[in-house]
Simulated assay, not measured.
Amino acid sequence: MGKVPAFEAAFGLRNPHLQTIVGRLARRRREPRYDRYRLDTEDGDFIDLDRWRGPEDATGVCLLLHGLEGSARSGYMVTTSEALAAAGIQAVALNFRSCSGEPNRLPGAYHSGRTDDIERALAWMAARFPDLPRTAVGFSLGGNALLNLLGREGGGRGLVAAAAVSVPWDLESSADALQRGMGRVYGRRFLRSLREKAREKAARFPHVVAPGAARARTIREFDDRLTAPIHGFRDAADYYARCSAKRFVDPVELPMLLVHARDDPLAPASSVPVETIRRRPNLSLELTERGGHLGFVGRGRGEGRAGPRTGWLEETVSRYISRATHWTTHPDSGVF
């Protein structure tokens, strides 16, 4: 399998915000083909997993983790599931608590460093597909959480490889980016959904969830008022310091692909621990000049297809996961 060509931004889409916005709009047109499975958790809550229908004879299984206020139905989750299926890999998408279309049962939900639900999903995959090599891909917040898991002692959890895209390597830097310039537009979009969930939780758990969380004006303020206290952190600064992915990448031992754009408006490239990543032979860094945040809208291929198209990211990730899966089952086929 050859290497995916380097990413080239589509003509007219060299702006990071256009990459981010057009990438989202283009991908959300795809219709998901999922079957849902609900797992009750030991603490009295639940998580919902969405398994992509197909392929029939899968050679591996991959867990997908979405970003802040996303879900299995987010465009990048659907298109990556499609690409994995085309490569013979069964995709399973984890909806973080409160993100599957139904409020979760407890005051707490999910955050950038929460890993127990990822472990539950991986255990479910191991039980349901015991003979298939397991992998995982995290997007944005989901990538941060995945690195939190993989960088801790015993963090492999039976995975043979992983990938993470547009990771907010330094959560404080990302929170700051959402308070400046165009970043405030993204921040307001996230806050609409987060504040609505905060209102619902404050009504159900008035002695646990402060009503002020529903009036937060920034992501940092929301994390100070709800995310941090409800999940055992002192404040937003403590949460950011303890859960930022840059702390956990060096100890990762399994093969892992890391994709990031230098012009990412939500996760500043200055926070990517490039030197740490490049000195680790098991880590592969695809650091593109352009691409925005989960955008990567490239040029079309072939005559008559010069217009913008998504697909580079999906092809890059699925190719890496497919190669890792193939090498696991055919170690004599060459060096992965």
Rank of each mutant, 00 (worst) to 15 (best):
G2S: 13
V4K: 03
A6K: 15
R28F: 08
D43S: 07
D45Y: 08
D50N: 11
H66Y: 00
G67C: 01
L68P: 13
Y76M: 09
L84K: 02
G88L: 05
N95P: 12
N95R: 10
N95V: 01
G101Y: 02
R105W: 06
P107C: 00
D117Q: 03
A121H: 00
P130R: 09
P130W: 13
R134E: 08
F139E: 08
N148D: 03
L150Y: 08
L150I: 02
E153Q: 12
G154H: 01
G156L: 05
L159M: 07
L159D: 11
A163G: 11
P168T: 13
E172G: 03
A175G: 06
A175L: 04
A177R: 10
V185C: 10
L194V: 02
K197G: 06
P206D: 15
V209T: 05
A214T: 10
I219K: 04
F222N: 03
D224H: 12
T227P: 01
P229C: 09
I230A: 05
Y239P: 14
A245D: 13
P255R: 05
M256I: 12
H260S: 09
T276P: 11
I277Q: 05
I277A: 00
S284Y: 06
L287T: 03
G291L: 09
G311Y: 03
W312V: 07
L313Y: 09
V317D: 12
V317L: 11
V317H: 11
H326Q: 15
W327C: 13
H330D: 14
